[in-house]
Amino acid sequence: MEFGEIVSVLLQGAVVTIQIVAMALPLAVLMAFSFGLIRLYAPAPFKQIAIVYIEFFRGTSALIQLYWIYFVLPFFGITIDAMTAAVVALGLNIGSYGTEVVRGAIQSVPKGQYEASIALNFTSSQRLWRIIMPQALVNMIPPFGNLAIELVKATSLVSLITIGDLTFKAKMLADTTLQVGEIFGVVLLFYFVMAQFLVFFIRRLETHLSKGLGRGGLHS
């Protein structure tokens, strides 16, 4: 097979990979914020639910979660297509790690900031959204960036439930041609470039945000 042909098949797979990332990432961020905040501030029963979600998804492995959603949910009468299963499984998995990022970043805002906002009589939601969160967001960017890279890597698992992503195409080509070295070399490079792109994007975002948020330093 021509090298160009291989690359073009792989590119089709890369598009699917990027699609999954683009859908799972917002879900992960949504889960991270909602359950991170529930874990911190909600009353007992909700907090327990959040802890169960977090411990469950962090304590088992992503591939098992994917299989469970894809193969077991139909037994409960919930049939979902492979793509939805992939997005849900990866979003919930990465989101569970994200809750700890949100929690940690909020807790790392100096205590004096809470105290000043109480002294100025802000309501508890104003305290969170106007004072604490803008500062916590800056702290969240680097760890969220790492999670985004973990998500890109984790998308390769979807090849195991027959989604035609980058890894799936690579394996398909490897089974039909003999140029396994080139194929997997190119695939690894693709993933590497995606990760580097994310790293670059995150650095930009970080400098941009910390500039807007008072020159980066958080101690005043």
Binding site: G112, Q113, A116, P134, G212, L218
Partner: peptide, 30 residues
């Protein structure tokens, strides 16, 4: 709390707001 105001040893200014915003935020929002 409307009766009370406090100045802190370590200032506790809001680093993500300009000096003016630090001063106007509470009167406006609260």
């Amino acid at each position: 709390r409307n009766h009370l105001g406090m100045v802190f040893q370590h200032f506790n200014l809001f680093p993500h707001m300009t000096v003016k915003r630090n001063i106007t935020e509470a009167p406006m929002r609260v």
